[in-house]
């Protein structure tokens, strides 16, 4: 025995033994130019099933298995993270929608008199509607770059420093995870979210804009 190793993953520490390949071949009768298992890495994560199926057709009677079959817990873990992401995104978008509706509703209700005056002197409903929607778009266009920059800087900072989860390191070891998490920003996600935010903002402005055009100038003018 050469030594005992320890990684952050207790599970693998308990499972694996490292040995010289020649020693193993001698013990297992595998020929010197042979192997009993080949691992393949694919570029695109979601293509594993198709590639595995194609390989299976070519390589029969050898058995081809995807990571999902070999280690179903990994797949579960993955889909859970994905579902968590979706739930979080929905919550944030809902918060955003209510935030914008609240802001724009205030902007409309605060200016009832002004809007009443505009309609009295001849601004038609279409223009009033567009005005409220445009205001929201401007707010979103001012807010989005600021948010993008803050998000970007936060991610870069956390990536450099790492989120320290050492308090739970014992538990994380069980799952084979490191006790420092380093978030990464993926350009595609980043842009998708920014576009989604702007679209959400525009959709959220429709209700306040409808509220604005339903005002009757006579009543709106009388408000203080």
């Amino acid at each position: 025995m050469g030594g005992i190793y320890k990684t952050v993953n207790r599970l693998s520490d308990e499972l694996y033994v490292y040995a010289q390949i020649d020693d193993l071949r001698r013990l297992t009768d595998v020929p010197f130019d042979g192997a009993h298992e080949i691992a393949m890495l694919v570029d695109k994560f979601d293509q594993t099933d198709t590639i595995a199926a194609a390989l299976q057709r070519e390589l029969s009677p050898w058995k081809v298995e995807t990571y999902k079959q070999i280690s179903p817990d990994l797949e579960l873990f993955n889909s859970q993270i994905r579902i968590n992401m979706i739930i979080m995104t929905v919550i944030f978008m809902l918060a955003l929608i209510f935030g914008i509706i609240n802001t724009m509703l205030m902007a409309v209700l605060e200016r009832m008199k002004e809007l009443g005056m505009l309609m009295a002197v001849g601004m038609n409903k279409f223009k009033v509607f567009i005005m409220v929607v445009l205001e929201t778009i401007f707010i979103a266009l001012i807010g989005a770059p600021i948010g993008m920059l803050l998000g970007y800087l936060t991610t870069i900072y956390l990536n450099r420093v790492g989120i320290d989860l050492s308090r739970w390191s014992k538990a994380l070891e069980e799952f084979g995870m490191s006790d420092t998490v380093r978030p990464n920003l993926n350009a595609e996600t980043f842009i998708t979210i920014v576009v989604a935010v702007v679209i959400t903002a525009i959709l959220a402005s429709i209700y306040p804009a409808l509220k604005a055009i339903r005002l009757k100038p006579v009543e709106a003018l009388r408000k203080i």
Binding site: K113, E114, G116, M117, L118, M119, A120, V121, G122, M123, N124, K125, L221
Partner: peptide
């Protein structure tokens, strides 16, 4: 909507509380 357009071209309004933007 025609009434709004009509007001725009035919009637000038002065309000009690000025109502300037």
């Amino acid at each position: 909507n025609q009434l709004i357009d009509f007001r725009k071209t035919h009637i000038g309004f002065v309000f009690q509380s000025y109502n300037l933007i």
